[in-house]
Design a protein around this nucleic acid. Structure first.
Lengths: 222, 222
DNA sequence: CCGTCAATAATTTGATCATATTCTCGGGCA
DNA sequence: TGCCCGAGAATATGATCAAATTATTGACGG
């Protein structure tokens, strides 16, 4: 193999770059308001500018990044109104996905979810925010992957990309223990194939998270 | 001025290309299943490949186009399941937007909507499909623009991009007169600031459209 | 004489293009 | 039928051009 720049698998560079930046957004390495430059990423990631441009274009299309009118790109700061829209959309879509997942879920799937949840609890115990965010995302992603509804899932994915960057600032000041763990409630609902209960659990989980984000943003952006 | 390639305004080329392709998708110039090549667009639009690549990446991120795994791109064919997901999402989101628009709408806004609707009726009378699709899109777009909810609007925009290409085949066989015109009902609701009625009108409009699409697809894809 | 503002120069960043390389698909041949 | 090779298309790079922000300098007013 003479190729030195090729990614882990045969994945195209722009895909690798896209995932890298997306993870940075989701897991708190890029803060809202922060400027993102093409040339900076070119230098940091040691790739050409074309793949970087494509990844950035893709992320802006998903709302994860935003143009500032002039040609600068930043991680968007969420307004209260935008947060409410995201909250509403999540509460519309995610319970539906949970319900669909509930109808298809197998014991094995539940085991997978439970093992992710264990890692999540460990991250909380260790006060490891990066890991907490990643596992929480994994949990929801795995759940929605069971729903067999690619379009709805992709819509929700886009929502996570929008509020993800704002999570860090909130959770940094958060005691690790307070959540009346909706994930556990959800797992029980899945075991019993109770789609209505699953819906409610996810609805609560979403509401809890978004309300927390909202109250934090309301005081900070005052 | 020596610049020969600059677009109508100061818009960047990739933006112009993006809008051009998007319109082609929305208004029936690109059919589902059709292959889209970079070099083809480079030749047709007489631009470099970089802007084309970016526009395509953006459209694939929005689900308007899809990668075929190898490096080919096509206009996606909708499965029944996908269509149902789109229908569900539209029925969740669009009435909400209509409701919000209703609370903010002015007499002037209603006049604008009504004038668009007139053009739409003319397009139907003239059996001009391209124009019908464009005016129908304009109507909804204008309505949702009043809602002051950029994120929800962008979500809906993405949905339209997904089912838009499939509309052409359906409407080609459609008698122009059958709709119990929900647009008129909606306009009345807006005049009376009746948000609930506006919601219902849009919900009916969406259901009608998507059901028609669904039945057509069910027989064709049999 | 000093501080502030404005105009301009320099640097940084983004946009586009032309070119080289890699990969996929399809036809020809054993 | 299976393998190899060539054509074509996509990916990635580097160079070039244009635009915008930032820094600098000079003049004016206090």
């Amino acid at each position: 193999m003479t190729q030195s720049k090729t990614g882990p698998a045969g994945l195209p560079t722009h895909e690798v770059v896209y995932r890298r930046i997306r993870d940075m957004l989701l897991f708190g390495e890029l803060a809202p308001g922060q400027a993102v430059t093409i040339q900076g990423l070119v230098a940091d990631l040691d790739v050409g500018m074309t793949p970087v441009r494509e990844a950035l274009r893709r992320l802006t299309a998903e709302g994860a990044l935003s143009f500032l009118g002039n040609r600068r790109i930043t991680v968007p700061l969420l307004s209260l109104s935008e947060l409410d829209q995201l909250s509403l959309a999540r509460r519309m879509l995610e319970p539906e996905l949970a319900s669909r997942a509930c109808e298809r879920v197998t014991k094995k799937d539940i085991d997978v979810l439970r093992s992710i949840d264990v890692l999540l609890d460990q991250a909380i115990a260790a006060n490891d925010m990066r890991n907490y965010l990643a596992r929480n995302y994994d949990f929801h992603k795995a759940l929605y992957g069971l729903a067999d509804a690619a379009i709805l899932s992709s819509l929700v994915d886009g929502l996570w990309l929008r509020f993800g960057p704002s999570l860090r600032g909130v959770l940094a000041t958060l005691e690790p223990l307070e959540t009346p763990d909706m994930h556990k409630v959800l797992l029980t609902a899945l075991e019993e194939k109770d789609a209505v209960a699953a819906k409610k659990a996810v609805e609560s989980d979403v509401s809890q998270g978004m309300d927390r984000l909202r109250s934090k943003l309301a005081t900070a952006g005052d």
